[in-house]
Amino acid sequence: MDLSEIWGTVFSFEDYAEILPLVSNSLVAGALLGLVGGMIGIFVMLRDMAFAVHGIAELSFAGAAFALLIGSNVVFGSLVGSVLASLVLGLMGAAAKDRNSIIGVLMPFGLGLGILFLALYQGRSANKFGLLTGQIVAVDTVQLGLLAVCSVIVLVALVAMWRPLTFISVDPAVAAARGVPAGRLSVAFMVVLGLAVALSIQVVGALLVLSLLITPAAAAIRVATNPVVTVGLSVVFAMTSVVGGILLALAGSLPISPYVTTISFLIYLVCRLIAWSRDRVRHSETLAAQAA
């Protein structure tokens, strides 16, 4: 395969207009998931739970692989896996230190189970690969319905918990004094996070969920401090990554996840650059002020 052939595999816009209507389902799902990922990512950052997201994703993968093996609904299997994992983490690992060790134990176990189920599975190998690296273009109307319902549940729950969850995440001492039930909120958040992880796996796969649940929020936090702006940017970044990734993937014959991860990574890089140059300006202004 020479370079131009590789390029042709990555990007080829022939027949683009004909393909586009066929994937409108995926685009809707992608936009919804961008909204979910961008919003919940802020809390993942605030609560320092990147590792938990990764751990839940591997158990979600095990659930999905099992569903695939027994010929059941893969989205459903992945939801069951991640909600179970997040309940275990939410109930057992209240302290960050405990949580990380529990995740470290659960994660390889989940991944191992998933690989076992896939090894036993006799069907198309593309299905297997899709669980790890994303498969949204294959979303049918039934699955789209399930995705949409779960997304709405996640969004409603997040909006309902927004203020007290922010409070216990950034300011636990005062929140406790104000009577905010931190324990129950944390468990509730874990369950919601589990749902969001299961949804994201349908787009980017179990290995790459962080690109949807962490990267956009991390990028937004770099450039904004106004909370409303931060959430808005995070959502825009996540949606751009998913929808842009799907559109670009149509032009080639590759899975969509490399496009999604690359876009979200580039956005993150740009945000870091902006933050860096702003800090430099601020720093030199401070120095100038001190010199004056």
Binding site: V159, A160, W162, R163, T166, V174
Partner: peptide
């Protein structure tokens, strides 16, 4: 931060 101290215990946004 000050605003959270005032109404952070309330549900919703």
């Amino acid at each position: 931060l000050v605003a959270l101290g005032i109404d952070g215990h309330k549900w919703g946004i």
